[in-house]
Design a protein around this nucleic acid. Structure first.
Lengths: 109, 109
DNA sequence: GACATTAATCGTAATATTGCAATGAATAAA
DNA sequence: TTTATTCATTGCAATATTACGATTAATGTC
């Protein structure tokens, strides 16, 4: 085990879980917040900013990129990472829909 | 390793990551959606509904409860689980704030 | 009391994640 | 061409997560 049984869930449930999972690490939260703040960033900055080793940051960036939430453009020897605005908005809609379910008037029981 | 370095992140970043992490599994997403839908639920229902073994569901419920997102009241031999509305709203605010950061007008580079 | 029902807990196997040192690839600077 | 810089990749150790069988605890029913 240690293996999620994705096949028994809906596509929507798996998608929500995938997005949530990538936000489930403070380093990735911090990376995204930094990218939003300065709106353009090279990986080196992030290593300074966050305080994890360069390979670790690189790995977190890869996960964010795989989900399409950020994009990276090579620029000389450095790489410029930034938010993929269009995909971010798509993700936001999906997550909002999940988080913003109507709360029942009062808790049961 | 395999150990998150929480101490190098802000409280806010760690909190966001904690909430996101609990949503990072489709079973927990499904449980929450079901609780929202029927607004009162016993664990047995969920075992039928979701299709995972009873101990597994019980474990997922525990994690949701630990974060305060659901509450469980004993009712005879069964337990009635439901959304903890107040805490859910608090969580929603925190997550919205993170997800709804201003997108830059256009992607950098 | 004896038995059934329901859900929590324990123990454990399989797998995933985190973090980093070492290394590699690509470009820029000399 | 050599060297420096920047970031990706590889490999690995430590830890976390997922899932479930077996068991336990608690309550209800007979």
């Amino acid at each position: 085990m240690g293996l999620v049984k994705t096949e028994i869930f809906t596509e929507q449930q798996n998608e929500i879980a995938l997005f949530a999972k990538v936000f489930g690490h403070p380093a990735r939260v911090a990376i995204l917040q930094h990218l939003f703040k300065i709106n353009a960033c090279i990986c080196g900055d992030l290593v300074q900013e966050i305080g994890l080793a360069q390979p670790t940051i690189s790995q977190h960036l890869k996960e964010l990129k795989q989900l399409g939430l950020i994009q990276g453009n090579v620029e000389g020897t450095s790489v410029c990472y930034c938010i993929h605005t269009e995909n971010w908005i798509k993700m936001k809609k999906i997550m909002f829909q999940f988080l913003d379910q109507d709360s029942p008037e009062k808790d049961c029981c």
